[in-house]
Amino acid sequence: MPNYRCPMCRKICATHLDLARHYLGQTDKKHKEWLKTQGLSYAALIKAQVTEFGNNGYEALAKVLQKEATVIDEI
């Protein structure tokens, strides 16, 4: 089973969606800033997640992480 590493820290998750959840739970500048390089806005993602029912914010980030997160075969 592949795992995915957060582009900004050591966190490893089993799915891109879980990784997106981890990512948007961080409060440091580093995590927030990297999103800009991907054409995303931290605040917009959070707003999408919390102001509408559904998982819109996480799913949008998960799509990006599918390309950007390093694949780790074993932990």
Partner: peptide, 14 residues
């Protein structure tokens, strides 16, 4: 500073 849109913390449970 460094808290865009004044987001202090978020929590997700699913």
């Amino acid at each position: 500073e460094d808290f865009p849109s004044n987001i202090n913390a978020t929590r997700h449970i699913e």
